[in-house]
Amino acid sequence: MDHSYSNTKQHQKGKRLKLNDRTTIQELHSKGYSNRAIARELNCSPSTIGYDLKRGTVSVYRYKAVEGQSTYELHRSECGRKS
């Protein structure tokens, strides 16, 4: 972001989360960190954290990084132009 009042650092647009990012989300979420606090740690948007928490939640409010990564890979394999 170009604004001086922005709370996120500048990062590459369209950056995807990797498994180690999702592991960090899992650790910080289990410690009770908010989406904004996790986003500050990973240098991304709080909504990105929220989407990934929704993607990787498999049982009653338990986030699993591996499940989030596998769901991401499944969605990526199904996207794109159909032949």
Rank of each mutant, 00 (worst) to 15 (best):
E78C: 04
R81I: 13
G68I: 05
N20Q: 10
Y63C: 05
V58A: 11
R55C: 06
T48P: 00
H11F: 07
S70L: 13
R55F: 04
T23D: 08
H75T: 05
S34G: 10
G56V: 04
L74W: 04
C44S: 06
Y63K: 05
R81G: 06
C44I: 08
N7S: 07
T8I: 13
Y63F: 15
M1S: 15
K54S: 12
S47C: 04
A37R: 11
V58Q: 12
G14L: 01
K13Q: 09
K54H: 09
K31P: 02
L19C: 00
Y61L: 13
T23C: 08
S70V: 05
Y51I: 09
H3Q: 05
A37S: 11
I49C: 07
K82L: 06
G56E: 08
H3F: 06
Q10D: 10
R62I: 10
G56S: 02
R81W: 06
A37L: 09
Y51A: 07
S34K: 13
L17S: 06
G14M: 01
H29Y: 14
R36D: 12
E73R: 12
Q10Y: 12
S47N: 10
R40A: 12
G50F: 01
G32A: 05
N20K: 12
S70H: 03
K31G: 00
T48C: 09
L74A: 10
S4P: 15
Y63T: 07
H29W: 15
H3N: 02
T71G: 00
Y63S: 06
G80S: 04
R22A: 01
H3K: 08
T48D: 00
G32W: 08
E27Q: 11
T8V: 15
K82A: 04
Y72L: 13
N43T: 02
N35A: 11
K31A: 12
L42V: 04
R55P: 04
L74Y: 14
Q69K: 08
R36I: 08
C44E: 02
I25M: 15
L17Y: 03
T24K: 12
V58W: 03
Y33P: 00
H75P: 00
D21P: 00
V66M: 11
L28P: 02
G68S: 15
P46I: 03
S47Y: 08
Y33S: 12
L74T: 08
Q12P: 01
R16V: 04
V60L: 13
H11E: 13
T23E: 15
E78L: 14
L17V: 02
R76L: 13
K82Q: 10
G32M: 07
A39K: 01
S30R: 15
C79R: 13
S59V: 06
N20G: 00
H11T: 13
S6I: 09
D2G: 12
I25H: 05
R81K: 07
G80H: 03
R55M: 07
M1L: 11
D2S: 13
D21Q: 06
K15I: 00
A39L: 04
S4R: 10
S6N: 08
T8A: 14
R55T: 02
A39D: 04
G32H: 02
G32Y: 11
N7K: 12
N43K: 10
